[in-house]
Design a protein around this nucleic acid. Structure first.
Lengths: 354, 354
DNA sequence: TTGTAAGCGTTATCAT
DNA sequence: ATGATAACGCTTACAA
């Protein structure tokens, strides 16, 4: 008498690791069908009290861990979402990842992480790989991507979200601050303090539409008052503290100096301030220095820095909720625009007289 | 005439997303068997030039992306490795993740990320979930885990590695610096400068065996000279810059002050230095302040900080290589101990006279 | 070199 | 409420 189950283990002998306990074993030991075991796991309330208890006890006893790939194959869902960040060491992305992770784990989902190194090609490749790994949805940074990326995602029916960007035109696909508006307002704040001569220490805008939008905000606010940044007062490069120092020094090669210097990110800002102190410049008496993004050190330096605070972990969290909503076919009611709040500290003030 | 292929799509109509192109479609369009398509992907050189070209072109044309779960089910490998970090925002872990990621992607592997929030229970649960997700191997931080964790991993034949720890006794399972030795040597360095009265600003050692090992290193070095830390000169807490400031201030409540203060991590050190400056203490003239771990700001502050540099991204990279070697049944020849180098900057010097 | 078909460990349909 | 069994989309003996 050969039951259908005996079919297993007839031929195959893959070089892969020895198989361990499976749902089938649980079913056999518990004396129920595989369907019942599956139900106990996935919809316990459709199974009688008694069987549920029996199966659960066998599961624990045998130490069975369901095989995700098999489940994924059957359900065509992995409960995994993928994210591609330009870099992982930048403070705001790290915080976003933490928030994302937190929110996902609430619904038993996991994060599959990839890194584009600010290259659209690499971003495309990473997304492809994530899709191959079966992610249910994808989180991206920015809204400028490889030209084939959206097609790739749509062909595969993968919901996605662009983070750290927001503008009304793209509502529903973006979660983040409105970069342009944030720096528009920061610049207005400085103009209202009386500043007219501005310097900018920026990170390169190549493959970084967030940084580009921020530059736009600055320029628009200035243009409204008939102002502009002199070319020699616009310097840009990488984004470390070191680079901030170097760029700041370059900015001040010739007089007259700008009375206000806007920096493109937290690290550049810290660098600029430290260099200004090394050069003996009085901040804000002689010059105001402001930044974008808020990392802890900015508030702790001897001259605490005025900056724009974005709650990056909130960006991650909201992006997660948006993706989950999309997966469940729900509409989302919460706002997708994240506040970008100007935190005025001691590094900004009116320009020097005369 | 009904070919066996016609069996598909008889019953099932899952609520899951519409299926898209599959290997079967590629095979059909290219006029070859499914086996051939599979071979073109996995061992191209066993297929004739002609078919290979034809299949590849159909793959591109149809935009087929192989289904990872199906492949994982068949091969029992996911090419994914899991990592559980206590937190993701701490600088050294972020760098390790970056290194890990980098090294994994070289061999087409991906990182599945989880976070334990310094809780052994949560770590255990996260590992369980990673196993369920089918990770081929697991990276952990530290070597003190939930009591059932190693059994869980071993029962499931999952290779793993403990990172950010190293001691000769556990060679082969650990990749990282020898925390005890690193702080033993840092303390020796201070003793040799002439310091006798030490203060420690530590992060809590609860669920953090790395921090505990570092404390041991300090105490051993002191004990060798018949020295010890006065209880009131040992303060500990969380690990932010803020906390560093607070703890430092508490440390100096009564005189006589320690002449050397050792901090448990980079953020605490920065906080301690900033607070010392706010208090008008001369560093290093009046007091030396040293730290553990090296983040960029430490080198850039007005008084650059002496600290222990650990190449965290190298920890991530080596851990990845070790895991891959284990998966491939290879022995690894490179060292698993990562250097912990004392970087002497300006914050340390001889104690004040008298 | 290429094709056939069994099997990977689940879920879900259908019947009971 | 439970059981039998056909998918899920791929890999890989084994046969040709």
């Amino acid at each position: 008498m050969s039951s259908p189950r005996d079919k297993r283990r007839t031929k195959t002998a893959s070089p892969a690791p020895a198989r361990s306990v499976g749902l089938r074993d649980v079913a056999r030991v518990a004396g129920v069908s595989t369907a019942t075991v599956s139900r106990v796991i996935n919809s316990p309330d459709t199974v009688s009290e008694e069987l549920r208890a029996r199966v659960n006890s066998v599961v624990r006893h045998l130490g069975w861990v369901p095989h995700g790939a098999a489940r994924a194959l059957a359900t065509r869902r992995t409960q995994t979402i993928g994210a591609v960040f330009p870099t992982l060491t930048h403070g705001d992305f790290a915080r976003a990842i933490q928030g994302l992770q937190n929110e996902l784990s609430k619904s038993g989902r996991t994060l599959l992480l990839a890194c584009s190194e600010y290259s659209p090609e690499q971003e495309y490749e990473q997304v492809r790989m994530l899709i191959e790994r079966g992610v249910d949805a994808v989180l991206l940074v920015g809204e400028a991507h490889h030209r084939d990326l959206s097609e790739l995602l749509e062909k595969n029916h993968i919901p996605y979200v662009n983070t750290f960007v927001y503008n009304a035109a793209s509502h529903g696909t973006c979660v983040g601050p409105d970069n342009r508006k944030a720096l528009y307002e920061l610049t207005r704040y400085l103009i209202e303090l009386g500043h007219r001569r501005f310097g900018v220490v920026a990170q390169t805008t190549e493959n970084n539409d967030r940084a580009a939008a921020r530059m736009r905000g600055i320029r628009e606010a200035l243009a409204e008052k008939g102002l502009a940044i002199e070319p020699r007062h616009f310097v840009h490069g990488f984004w470390t503290i070191q680079e901030g120092r170097n760029l700041f020094r370059r900015l001040l090669q010739d007089k007259p100096w700008p009375t206000a210097v806007i920096c493109g990110n937290a690290y550049l800002t810290v660098g600029a301030l430290l260099e200004s102190q090394a050069m003996g410049i009085a901040v804000p008496g002689q010059m105001s220095i402001v930044g974008y993004d808020d990392i802890e050190i900015m508030a702790e330096l001897p001259i605490p820095l005025t900056t724009v605070r974005v709650l990056s972990d909130e960006v991650g969290r909201r992006a997660a909720r948006l993706l989950i909503a999309k997966l469940e076919g729900r509409e989302i009611d919460e706002s997708l625009e994240c506040a970008a709040e100007i935190i005025v500290r001691q590094s900004s003030g009116p320009p020097p007289k005369g």
